[in-house]
Design a protein around this nucleic acid. Sequence first.
DNA 1: GTTGTCGGTGTACAGATGTTCACTGAAAGG
DNA 2: CCTTTCAGTGAACATCTGTACACCGACAAC
Lengths: 219, 219
Amino acid sequence: MIETGAEPESRAERKLRTRRAILDATLELCTDSSLTALSLRQVAKQVGIVPTAFYRHFDSIESLGLALVEESFDSLRDLFRDVRRNARADQDPSTSSGHRIVDGSIDALVDHVHRRRDHFGFIARERVAGPRSVREAIRREIELCERELATDLALMTGTDTWTAKDLHVLSSLFVTVLVATAEQILSTTRPEQEEQIVATVRTQLRMLLIGVYQWRSES
Amino acid sequence: MIETGAEPESRAERKLRTRRAILDATLELCTDSSLTALSLRQVAKQVGIVPTAFYRHFDSIESLGLALVEESFDSLRDLFRDVRRNARADQDPSTSSGHRIVDGSIDALVDHVHRRRDHFGFIARERVAGPRSVREAIRREIELCERELATDLALMTGTDTWTAKDLHVLSSLFVTVLVATAEQILSTTRPEQEEQIVATVRTQLRMLLIGVYQWRSES
DNA sequence: GTTGTCGGTGTACAGATGTTCACTGAAAGG
DNA sequence: CCTTTCAGTGAACATCTGTACACCGACAAC
């Protein structure tokens, strides 16, 4: 469609470009309304291809959704990597009860959500409203994240004597709060309201952390 | 359609019955797929009326959704009432750190979610995937619940010296966990997995409660 | 008993939907 | 150079979509 100067572009590259265009168009089209309400023809029109050409890349909206799940969770894993790097740098016993880690993690969350509104919004929506297979894929990925976070938590001071079960319980709670916060950030555009959301979750995590530092696993 | 014997049934009653049938049909049809993916004709067919008759009751799927929001939050308020009654009965200083209240509240949650799967599922889904006006209505209702819970929390031992802001922060965290738990319960049918979910949230709330009991509001 | 109200019906239409099929034309491969 | 591959085309289809309109017939009101 739009050729910008002299780009040879192999056939494979061109195919990949259209595929990307489909993924992007889909993310844009379902910013409000969910995959299940999205038609193949809307996507095709947005991309600028004929409806039938869609089948050269995906054989249904559902499998398109599965591809978007993978892509979106790449963004979420980026966030996790940032948080982990952040936490490791602050593994300083002199800091008071992990306030730095909390603040750093929240900042990272806000930052990543802003940079990939589309991906985080996609996960939040399709997690509960998408086609069954998409919902299941998302749940599986989230459980993966929880397990991953649990092993990270095991390495931190204070939780080193915890049972594996308790570690996972805590990890799951963090992920729940993380998801809820992302949803809230996505549902507002007013900066002062976002400030409010961030301040709230900051306090929530601090309250929780007090409990965590006192917790001793039973048995 | 189905006349069971001698029921005079006034015109108003009949209209109300059809309205109910529409609401029920809608809840059933969108157990997986969201309002935005639901067509007026599907609803009409499920109810057993002709498509145009739909307009005698609602002027769009969206306004139908708003009615369902009100109805669903009636169920949620029922839950809150149960929890509050429960908590008041257990306002006994001899119980250890509110374990009884936590357990009772979770039991009430599970019970209500089972009894009104449709309503809780509707809220969980349309909260993020419904039409804009429906999403906004749900968010408003949830904020109402948070405020309500915050005033309840103020009356409890341990939080009586807290600032209004901190009370709302805690209330918001409880509601977040509540919503997340309801979502998890709804997404499973296996009893042993539900047991697992309940055990997890029980521990999570206990961890959190430790922090709450130590928390002192600043300024 | 006449009249008006109003749920519900049936027909109709213009447009959108998923999917099929035979096609084109340029890049890839021999 | 000639052949194959294959992303994208375009027409055609049966079906579903929201909504407009004229209509019916039972209940309600007078």
